[in-house]
Design a protein around this nucleic acid. Sequence first.
DNA 1: TTTTTTCATGGGAACGGTTCCAATTTTTTG
DNA 2: CAAAAAATTGGAACCGTTCCCATGAAAAAA
Lengths: 350, 350
Amino acid sequence: MKSKYTTIIDIARQLNISKSTVSRALTGHPNVKEHTRKAVLELAATMEYQRNSLALGFSKHTTNTIGIMVPEFMSTYFPSVIVGVQDVMQAAGYNVVICQQNESYESEVSNMKLLLSYCVDGIIVSHTKETRNFDHFTLAQRRGVPLVFFNRVPDDMNVPNVVVNDYEAAFQAVEHLIGIGRKRIAHLAGPESLVNTRLRRQGYLDALKKHGIPYNPDLVLSYDLTTEKVKIYMKHFLDLETPPDALFAINDPTAIAAMEVVKAKGLRIPEDIAVVGFSNDFSAQLVYPGLTTVAQPTADIGRTAAEMLLTELKAKVKNDYSIKKAPTVQLPTKLIIRESTMVKGKVKKH
Amino acid sequence: MKSKYTTIIDIARQLNISKSTVSRALTGHPNVKEHTRKAVLELAATMEYQRNSLALGFSKHTTNTIGIMVPEFMSTYFPSVIVGVQDVMQAAGYNVVICQQNESYESEVSNMKLLLSYCVDGIIVSHTKETRNFDHFTLAQRRGVPLVFFNRVPDDMNVPNVVVNDYEAAFQAVEHLIGIGRKRIAHLAGPESLVNTRLRRQGYLDALKKHGIPYNPDLVLSYDLTTEKVKIYMKHFLDLETPPDALFAINDPTAIAAMEVVKAKGLRIPEDIAVVGFSNDFSAQLVYPGLTTVAQPTADIGRTAAEMLLTELKAKVKNDYSIKKAPTVQLPTKLIIRESTMVKGKVKKH
DNA sequence: TTTTTTCATGGGAACGGTTCCAATTTTTTG
DNA sequence: CAAAAAATTGGAACCGTTCCCATGAAAAAA
């Protein structure tokens, strides 16, 4: 049995015209007689004709589709970036397919191959916490498929990217903790592989230095972003001879998991330990007490990344393969102060 | 300039053999001399050959890729279903692409066309709250592309689906509210278009009936699942002459938004108003007070849907287009009782 | 050694669409 | 009304891969 799909050949046969004419009629080519065009369009509708994108992409080597790949989406950060991306790309007439690596390097490589083998026109991506080898990304570049990174950006690739000033934001966050009188500020950092980890930690270190607080290596731990580890490390902090009086966490899930430990131990937030997170996840406002955190303009990050990709796509069409420095856009963050760092009476009442 | 992609023809030319042999060597066909196979594989590696899935899918009319489409992913429900789906499908050797409708019918139709035009082998889907016309889904069926629905299932389509017993779960949730002595139980229902809305409301109604509580239409409002509306409707409930003493919300985001209103008004939860949500979103345990809710086995829902799709795909290969009733799998829910309905002293201390 | 079978390879059609070029028809112009 | 120009249409190549069929070579059987 033949395929159930209607093809332009089926239409051509029925109308006794050539498939070229059918193709022209369907794509809106000017040189088709009105009468013919109408007949084709009508028959196409009744036969439920739908253009085969595989055949099209195959022959044109371009698909009008872009991919976005995110390492996870259990927090609201990545989903909301995606919504921003879809916003812009759909308005520009592009389709968007989403891939998720589940924080697995292997998954990332295979998703990348999937996207490339389907000839997407461009890819917006944030890499996993495991990624140390970037060959699968440079491959895309060699193939002429433009990439735009956001949030997690490989530091030795010349590639357009959208980020926030992690260093500055972390600096401010820690300065805020110092401002409310904290001296023993612990830091739960992320995996070394992420730029964010390094930048935020540097911000932490420099804020301490500026205010004359000596750096205490016992109070800084890098970890792999799994909930179990937070619990272990936070317990470790609390069991120190002189435990910390504040925590700056690499992100909100970390902060929230740490808060659980603090509360379970019967300590008060912020009185005993003030806590600051990062990214202003939706849950930051829900948790008790409300979590002070660095807000990122997630939807804007998505929109900006999408616009940068559109620029790349246009440049590519014009064959403008200039080997200049790839653009970086830095969007502003904002420290959102909530109860987890409000000491003087001003605690939200429930 | 030629395409930057390496093709089997490039390899064939370099090795001075035919493309058929190259193809066979690459796909692991048995009838290739070991010597030849090795040469091909080596050259393919050095030339960074990567099979063009468009050409492949185009010629075979099957792509080894499935699509999953979800209406939104700002809550943890859908992302965690997706993870379950990926789990099973990747193990079965399938690629997974994700689409998001953003609760827009238009987006749903265009995503559906996108997936079909890319010849995905099957689609797992939950429709938007706006969807009333299901032609874009029956089209897939007519094309022989198997569908599996979950959570939001069109009620007049004979299609495999994975659900929970919304009716029973709602019944239990409301019975629980009655059990703690509530008589004026309000219900914020979802849009009429969703089966879930209707089933959960029926559960609500029948629980009231069973316990001899007369149904009060003033206490039931259907709404469109937008946060602004919750606020308006919840205020409306609280301004009633005799306001409700409990709320059963269609889902957790609704419950949480409603709780905001209650707290802003200075009322206590659960003393003045007890609240129950649905789905056990990650935020349900974070919000203060902890939200009583109906837990759904999200990852299992995803895994089950994926397995059903695999069954469909196998049946299709065997040409087993039996026109029997499509299977429905109902997975168990569990009422998670938290502080938002704990009256007798047992309130979690912070 | 001859015949048969198996193995390895090459050739070419097919998949569905676009696009260029040539051919035909229609329209315009002289 | 014939010639030129423009509009419309058909034919064929092309995109990368698989797969069927044919062919030739090598191995096994007679």
